[in-house]
Design a protein around this nucleic acid. Structure first.
Lengths: 113, 113
DNA sequence: CAGAATTACGCGCAGCGTAACAATT
DNA sequence: AATTGTTACGCTGCGCGTAATTCTG
């Protein structure tokens, strides 16, 4: 699928890129190495490019891999920020100007149903 | 899951929000209404908030739903931009400043679809 | 043998469609 | 009846784990 850029894949990719090895990423993610390997393969298949160069010492980023790595965190952060904004978990952003209005429009977490 | 913000869900959500109805979104997406309904339900479950208010005339955005809608396109665009950057499909973005460098590194528009 | 990744196999859940259903106009 | 959304059911594929395999130092 060309829509194959799923955030889950990107998260796994970022972990592998950072750890340098599949097993290391698997440990950090709490997953099995086989699962991580599969995720990377699917992401590569979905994108149509090779993200890593498989060496005997681990996974080394290719050029497209580096391009993705540079953008992965930004995208993941973006997604996480959206999630927080929607769920209402502002998490003390240093905006300051919202303190007074916030007292009036307290969203009460979950609503009906 | 807190990691429940998958891009597929957001795409479906955006379509529903734009169409106003599940069936309309399903047509636009080429999916069955049941699938769309399920996607929305899962997204809501993953986020823990109600995104729509089910009326007999269609789906009306709730406050969190509007919050997501305002950010959905940005996130999807971001993801798409990352995908293009990684695969090398620049596709004439109106950035302007890239025109000259682009002439040097024309990536030959890889196979799509 | 130790460490790396991959493959093979099985299980459970998610995604999808079709069909049937409930509710309102 | 026609519209909407949902549920039920079944199928396919993904995500995941465990175990086995391959390759190099």
């Amino acid at each position: 699928m060309l829509a194959g850029v799923e955030l889950r894949h990107v998260r796994v990719f970022a972990a592998v890129a950072r750890a340098g090895t599949v097993v290391g990423a698997a440990n950090q993610l709490g997953l099995a190495p086989a699962s991580v390997s599969e995720q990377v393969r699917r992401l590569e298949g979905g994108l149509g490019v090779a993200l890593f160069e498989r060496t005997l010492q681990g996974m080394r980023l290719t050029a497209p891999g580096q391009a993705l790595l540079e953008r992965a965190h930004g995208l993941l952060d973006h997604a996480d920020e959206v999630r927080r904004a929607v769920t209402g978990q502002r998490r003390r952003i240093s905006v300051g100007a919202l303190e007074m209005p916030a007292a009036t429009r307290r969203p009460a977490s979950t609503s009906s149903t």
